[in-house]
């Protein structure tokens, strides 16, 4: 399971901060404005990487969910990773919509239009918001994780639909600049490099946010498991034989140097 030591997470956070700062300087100060769109085009350097980050996050959610559903790789950690990544994906899908709206108003002349790209992106937002709600509907942990994993795989169908919507249908939204059908990027060099840097900076941000979010999820999971243990212990003590849950609790198995991982520490040896 992916887990970084705390100094590594802090270093990643610092690197992300520097990268985002450099991006702001490049995108707002160094790179020239667009011939047609003027300064408004500078929103591309946050709108495009935000959308990329959302795709990446939902891809990680889909892969983690598949790994949870496959019995041979089933571990609670995959479910935790899927949920953490989806949360970040939802935030950046929302950000993509807001930034797109701010870009659309000066350039298209509209905050919002009902074209296929915008609508399928809004659908993506609500699909994964619904997924996050579904994750919180209480149930047995394994049942909850399985139904979340199935929902995540269904929701992921919309990601390629969003991406190819501008090629499949006639939209007001332009086609992708770099990954268009002809792979023929019509973008001047310094703008292209700034966009590439922006994608790298946002990918770093994803790495940092994920590392933190997974740390947090494990910490909270550990607490939940201890509370569950306590509840079971209390019921066993009061006479009702409910020990069936106990075998599954230490499931967080790999423990690859997870410094201070209470999901392992809390559920495992010292209980």
């Amino acid at each position: 399971m992916i887990s970084l030591a705390r100094p590594a997470v802090n270093a990643l956070g610092l690197l992300t901060l520097v990268a985002l700062f450099v991006l702001a300087v490049l995108a707002l100060g160094v790179v020239p404005p667009d011939a047609v769109q003027g300064d408004a085009q500078r929103l591309m350097y946050v709108h495009v990487p935000a959308a990329w980050l959302a795709y990446l996050a939902f891809f990680v959610t889909a892969v983690s969910s598949a790994l949870y559903l496959w019995p041979r790789t089933r571990q609670p950690g995959w479910d935790l990773l899927a949920g953490s990544s989806a949360e970040i994906g939802v935030i950046f899908t929302g950000l993509t919509l807001v930034l797109g709206s701010l870009w659309g108003r000066p350039v298209w002349g509209a905050w919002w239009v009902w074209d296929a790209r915008l609508v399928t992106t809004a659908v993506l937002f609500f699909l994964y918001l619904g997924y996050l709600a579904l994750r919180r509907v209480p149930a047995d942990p394994d049942v909850r994780a399985r139904r979340a994993a199935i929902a995540a795989l269904i929701a992921f169908v919309d990601v390629p639909i969003v991406h190819f919507s501008v090629n499949w249908w006639r939209t007001l939204h332009q086609e992708a600049t770099v990954f268009n059908p002809d792979l023929d990027a019509q973008i001047e060099g310094s703008m292209a490099w700034t966009l590439l840097f922006a994608v790298v900076a946002f990918t770093l941000a994803y790495g940092y946010l994920m590392a933190r979010r997974v740390q947090l999820a494990r910490l909270e999971e550990g607490r939940e498991e201890r509370e569950l243990d306590a509840a079971i212990a209390a019921r066993v003590a009061s006479g009702s034989e409910r020990t069936d849950l106990e075998d599954r609790v230490p499931g967080e198995g790999t423990g690859k140097g997870n410094i201070g991982d209470p999901a392992v520490a809390g559920a495992g040896e010292h209980r």
């Binding site: 950000l95 807001v98 930034l99 870009w103 108003r105 000066p106 941000a205």
Partner: peptide, 18 residues
């Protein structure tokens, strides 16, 4: 709002969300 206003709003919102 000028073009620069939309751009600044976008970058500020991004920072605030993060």
């Amino acid at each position: 709002m000028s073009d620069a206003g939309f751009v600044v709003a976008g970058y500020v919102i991004t920072a605030v969300v993060l």
